[in-house]
Design a binder for these strands. Structure first.
Lengths: 352, 352
DNA sequence: TTTGTTTATTAAAACGTTTTAATTACTTTT
DNA sequence: AAAAGTAATTAAAACGTTTTAATAAACAAA
């Protein structure tokens, strides 16, 4: 039932040439540069035969011989988190165009898992890695870089390390979301963040702090740090904030925003009447309820394509001097219109 | 800088045996069956040397020689949908234990994309496929089956085709969610579904219909069919339903529920005061707002593991008579406590 | 004609495994 | 002591490419 695969050899026989020539044509070193030159007509004929026989190159053989797997690994925090899932799809699509296969993995913010995944991917054979580094992974990342494995960091960075990366201008995003809240007249704005030492989070906090200061609200600036494995504490935090008449929250991530909103609603408070909200990333719930005054829409598409382009470049010139590029993307701040907000508040009262 | 990889040959030299023997030991055909027998001590020695040199088998060479890629393809509707993302992660984890690599792809419910993906995966070389078939893909799926490529269908089935599958007991799930709504005293319960001819959706509808009939509400049973590329129409539908004093909706999928809720809130109605809700799957918003009276929690873990186990079995006995297994999973219905519901309603009024 | 240059082609080695068939070294059995 | 088994080992082919180094053909220059 299973039919033999067509090989380069079959094409050679059919076209009456050597297998080497077929190989040259297939990798179109034919016309390119001064490497191998193949007669135009012969090349044409070979291509036609290949087409006719429906030739599909054998990847294993290719890889075995050339040492190139044409596979890359993408390691994120959690592939089932919308932000990363979207980026992953984007990388995948883009990689397809460049004839690369992508393997995915999730660290769950655990450096041990990261190390393990890298080990697995290396053994499977990958040409390079895109990694979202987690807390405590600095040494692991440094190690990869030291081994001269093509690497691009995504979303977060590792300090004092010369390696390519694609990140958001998180400081600016933090500044502008805070400013959106201030424009709406809020003063007691507090930020809810993680206690992890991630570069992107730190930058967001920095943006918030600066903005509060710039608007003479420096003394109101408070940043709460939650452990990511103790998110339940967010409820106490919010209750306590309510006592202190806090008016608005800036959430450092979509997960925090989700947990925060959940806690707010559990306590019977309403948004934005009791608490105004701004945050990073969106999530499904936001789309449905339109709760946030402002949120940061991350340029998913760019994250994906830029990271992949950098990686491919780095793979192709693996032996060249280790230049590296840092790409900083500009955040888009999405604000809900003030009227809209009012209307929904009024309606709630009318209905209530 | 880059160090040479350790090969089977290095081990052979170091241990003073032939490469064949090393290969035998590595594939531990050593002790097994009556195939190859290797002296216990020699085997031990070889393993030690391998360990010492930190040997990692070269996958490309293995694949080239044996024809087995140890890679499977998983094709779902949309890998960034939480339901599929969770299943994917689960399959991935499970596959890892069996030393399989997983490639992912999304059809976006487009049979053309499915066909394309299958082509791509086949060329990359996969040992088998797990597929969530989309509408209009019957012929494509049949084709795969005909070519004797190991295949397991997930979540949905194709009629009149002997192929393994893992699905939910959708009829029962439909019945029981409807019943939960009825128990809360609702009578005018309508279902919002897709116009696509997917087996799982059809079964859900069937369950709803039967339940309504069983409770003497057969004449109230109405199923609305929306085109998946015209979801915006859901708003008109709901407005019109409000006019007719419809009390509750059963949504056929989490996407529909999301869109439906969004439309309900846009119009200023409240849940469950104005519309009660039940649906299939959960989503992030539900977790936050606890809106649904009842929802179907799908056994993600089982979907993943069962599908993979079936596939691996089918890969291993590829030449054997084509037996196939159908696994039907039991849905878990999650109901919110009636008091909870009341409380939140009261609070809303007090606050409003 | 000889020599050199460019253009087009190929033979053959290599990549690291798996697997078949053959070989060697021991035991038994006759 | 020869024959027949059995257990342990190995040589060598094969998988389908890429790529180096060699060769052949055609043409231009000497």
């Amino acid at each position: 039932m299973r039919t033999k695969r067509v090989t380069i050899k079959d094409i050679a026989t059919e076209a009456g040439v050597s297998i080497a020539l077929v190989s040259f044509v297939m990798n179109n070193k034919a016309d390119g540069k001064d490497t191998y030159r193949v007669n135009k007509e012969t090349a044409q004929r070979i291509l036609e035969v290949a087409q006719k026989l429906n030739y599909q190159p054998n990847n294993a053989a290719r890889t075995l011989r050339s040492g190139k797997t044409n596979t890359i690994g993408v390691i994120v925090s959690d592939i089932s988190n919308k932000f990363f899932a979207d980026i992953a799809r984007c990388i995948e699509n883009h990689a397809y165009k460049h004839k690369y296969t992508v393997l995915f993995g999730s660290t769950d913010e655990n450096p041990q898992k990261l190390e393990n995944l890298i080990e697995v991917f290396r053994n499977k054979g990958i040409d390079g890695l895109v990694v979202v580094p987690c807390e405590g992974a600095d040494e692991i990342i440094r190690d990869i870089a030291r081994q001269n494995i093509p690497l691009v960091l995504l979303d977060r960075e590792v300090s004092d390390l010369e390696v390519s990366s694609v990140v958001l201008n998180n400081r600016r995003a933090g500044y502008e979301t805070t400013e959106a809240l201030i424009r709406r007249g809020f003063t007691r704005i507090e930020m809810i963040s993680y206690s992890m030492g991630l570069s992107n989070i730190r930058e967001r906090e920095e943006g918030y702090r600066r903005c509060m200061q710039a608007h003479g609200k420096g003394e109101n600036a408070v940043i709460h740090h939650l452990r990511h494995d103790k998110l339940a504490k967010i409820e106490d935090l919010i209750r306590e904030a309510r006592q202190r008449r806090v008016e608005a929250f800036l959430f450092a991530t979509n997960t925090l925003a989700g947990q925060g909103l959940s806690a707010i609603f559990r306590n019977g408070w309403r948004v934005p009447q009791d608490f105004a909200i701004a945050c990073f990333d969106t999530n499904e719930a936001f789309d449905i309820y339109k709760t946030a005054i402002a949120y940061v829409r991350q340029p998913i598409e760019q994250f994906g394509t830029e990271a992949l382009d950098l990686l491919i470049k780095s793979i192709e010139q693996r032996d060249k001097p280790g230049s590296c590029t840092r790409i900083v993307l500009t955040p888009e701040i999405v604000e809900s219109a003030p009227e809209e907000e009012l209307r929904s508040a009024e309606q709630a009262i009318a209905e209530g």
